[in-house]
Amino acid sequence: MSHSEYIPVPELCKHYCITQTFFEELHDKGVLQIVSIEHTNCLHQESIPTFEKIVRISEDLHINMEGIDVILNLLDTVDNLRNQLNATQNRLRLYE
């Protein structure tokens, strides 16, 4: 893994107008994985879409950390169920 795949948290704080404690809370709850690189907390670039979802949920809906965790788990469950349904429908088409 190269360091270019990670974005420093202070940079994200400036861009999204979020405090560093928000990132720490997300990390403490296990919602996002923050990595320390050269004494700077960083977020992997693949986590940005999830982080943006979290910001929208938090700011637009005024949901607390526990609620955010529940909502993300429910969204993952819905995606998994949707994938299973698509796979089942594809298998059924073979018999039609």
Rank of each mutant, 00 (worst) to 15 (best):
29 K>Y: 15
31 V>Q: 01
90 N>Q: 14
92 L>T: 09
86 N>T: 05
67 G>H: 02
81 L>E: 15
72 L>D: 04
87 A>N: 14
55 V>A: 02
63 I>F: 14
61 L>Q: 13
60 D>M: 02
59 E>F: 12
59 E>S: 14
43 L>Y: 00
88 T>Q: 13
40 T>G: 00
95 Y>V: 07
49 P>L: 00
56 R>S: 10
4 S>W: 14
37 I>R: 04
94 L>K: 13
72 L>V: 05
66 E>G: 11
96 E>P: 01
6 Y>R: 04
83 N>I: 07
80 N>Q: 15
72 L>P: 04
63 I>N: 08
96 E>G: 03
70 V>S: 10
62 H>T: 11
66 E>V: 10
51 F>Y: 04
60 D>E: 10
19 T>A: 06
74 L>N: 10
19 T>V: 03
39 H>C: 07
96 E>R: 08
19 T>S: 13
51 F>A: 03
76 D>L: 12
32 L>V: 03
7 I>M: 03
60 D>Q: 10
20 Q>D: 05
42 C>Y: 03
15 H>L: 10
41 N>M: 00
46 E>Y: 01
80 N>S: 14
78 V>W: 03
14 K>V: 08
16 Y>K: 01
23 F>A: 00
2 S>N: 15
5 E>P: 05
94 L>H: 12
75 L>S: 15
30 G>H: 02
86 N>R: 06
35 V>L: 04
67 G>D: 01
76 D>K: 13
22 F>D: 07
4 S>E: 14
3 H>Y: 12
43 L>T: 01
57 I>V: 12
81 L>H: 15
90 N>E: 15
65 M>C: 08
44 H>I: 00
35 V>Q: 09
73 N>I: 08
13 C>Y: 03
8 P>W: 05
87 A>P: 05
15 H>F: 07
48 I>T: 03
69 D>C: 04
13 C>F: 01
59 E>N: 15
62 H>N: 12
82 R>M: 11
64 N>V: 11
46 E>P: 02
26 L>N: 07
60 D>L: 05
78 V>G: 03
36 S>V: 06
74 L>K: 10
27 H>P: 07
31 V>M: 05
41 N>W: 00
5 E>Y: 10
95 Y>K: 07
50 T>H: 01
34 I>Y: 02
10 P>H: 05
85 L>P: 06
40 T>A: 00
93 R>N: 14
21 T>C: 02
57 I>M: 14
65 M>E: 09
95 Y>P: 05
33 Q>I: 08
61 L>S: 11
45 Q>R: 06
57 I>F: 14
95 Y>S: 09
23 F>C: 00
82 R>P: 06
15 H>R: 09
70 V>E: 11
79 D>L: 07
9 V>H: 00
70 V>N: 12
73 N>C: 09
76 D>Y: 07
30 G>A: 02
33 Q>E: 13
45 Q>D: 00
90 N>Y: 08
83 N>D: 13
2 S>K: 15
31 V>R: 02
42 C>K: 04
64 N>S: 12
93 R>L: 12
76 D>P: 03
95 Y>T: 11
35 V>C: 05
28 D>I: 09
27 H>M: 07
13 C>H: 03
56 R>A: 11
65 M>F: 09
16 Y>P: 04
95 Y>C: 08
34 I>M: 03
4 S>T: 13
27 H>F: 12
90 N>L: 11
60 D>A: 08
43 L>R: 01
24 E>R: 12
